[in-house]
Design a binder for these strands. Structure first.
Lengths: 215, 215
DNA sequence: CCTACCGATCGGTAGG
DNA sequence: CCTACCGATCGGTAGG
């Protein structure tokens, strides 16, 4: 084992990742300069480069750390002995908790993944797909009639839509907290599942919604 | 009135906006260079500047045009004599139609609005709020018991979450078209509304979900 | 005089 | 750890 880093090294490093995630979330990866990151961290630019190889590595680690956190969460809930519907509800509650706690990293994961090089992008997207698959499986256990139907994946994605979108508009100081919204999302989702019609068999019947009318 | 532009001017201009929207959607506003925009349009950079004042103006017009389109759509549906629930369903169908048709502009609207200067950003966000308010009103007419409750706005945003999120993962060549998904979204939403519990009265009861267990 | 458009290069600033 | 500075590339515009 090589000689250790300074004691505060990892702490400092984690703080840098957090500050960088904040900046990337607000300004986007490309529009954020390493000077800004250094300034936000209270260190000089050369010091910053002591903790991170380059700007790109910041992006890679923020995205990978966050998606790994989501996978850990899913794994924890999967081993719990729970009725299927309760498992889905717990997954929703835990996800919204993490989203609220790591709003910046989550925004980076959803918006800046396009700046990752193919190999890194694949790693992150594969991990994300694993999370979605776990949700889809839990949903199918709670609603066996949906299992292996063409709607299993789409309704899972609609659930993610509700959860993910919340954090593009939800203000941390808002009236409704994530803890209050989680059961609302779960109720809306399960209540809605019961009402969803099973697949349209014909291939894209080109449903025409009325065009504008002329008087 | 000044002498007119060349006949193809407006056509060319619209094509430039469309190409720029594609590039901005795929690479982000900041990471896209005017050289790329010019290349994608098959014109030289000086020619490009003949059609647009500068890069920023591209962003402003893409965002404003798209949000204006959404407002036009809402206004059209609002004047139709329809039962409340049908109005919401038509709004959903029309929105997903526009999203599918203008996927690039929609992505720019949701992801690159942060690069707008305050005054322009306010204009766009105000227009967006108008669209959301129209949805919220239509929803409240379909479900009067929800009107003016703390949940009216949140459930409206959850609906937008489902619609908007679809287009961050939906492939144009996928199995399910937007026309097939629109009724699924509507069914899920209305079915779910019936199941949603009305507000938690106590202020943020800090629902604790279990932490990880140690064996 | 106008428009439309080229090749070449400007001043400033990015990551490093 | 800082000042200083690089090679490369940005958005935008000069002359012709």
């Amino acid at each position: 084992m090589p000689r250790g880093r300074a004691p505060g090294y990892n702490t400092q490093r984690e703080q840098i990742l957090a500050r960088a995630a904040d900046l990337f979330a607000r300004q986007g990866y490309t529009a954020t300069s390493m000077n800004q990151v250094a300034l936000a961290c209270g260190v000089s630019k050369p010091s910053l480069y002591h903790y991170v190889r380059d700007k790109y590595q910041l992006l890679v680690e923020i995205a990978q750390d966050h998606v790994a956190r989501l996978n850990t969460l899913v794994a924890e809930v999967q081993v719990m002995p729970l009725p299927p519907a309760d498992r889905v509800r717990l997954l929703i509650a835990r996800f919204m908790e993490v989203y609220a706690d790591a709003q910046a990293a989550h925004r980076v994961l959803t918006e800046d993944v396009k700046f990752l090089e193919p190999a890194d992008q694949k790693r992150v997207l594969d991990a994300q797909r694993q999370v979605v698959a776990a949700f889809a499986q839990a949903i199918a256990e709670a609603r066996p009639d949906l299992h292996a139907t063409p709607l299993q994946k789409p309704v899972t994605m609609l659930l993610f839509g509700m959860m993910n979108w919340m954090f593009t508009w939800h203000q941390p100081g808002g009236k409704l907290t994530h803890a209050q919204m989680a059961p609302v999302v779960a109720d809306l989702f399960f209540g809605g599942l019961a009402a969803v019609q099973l697949p349209v068999p014909q291939p894209a019947p080109a449903i025409k919604t009325p065009q504008r009318r002329r008087a």
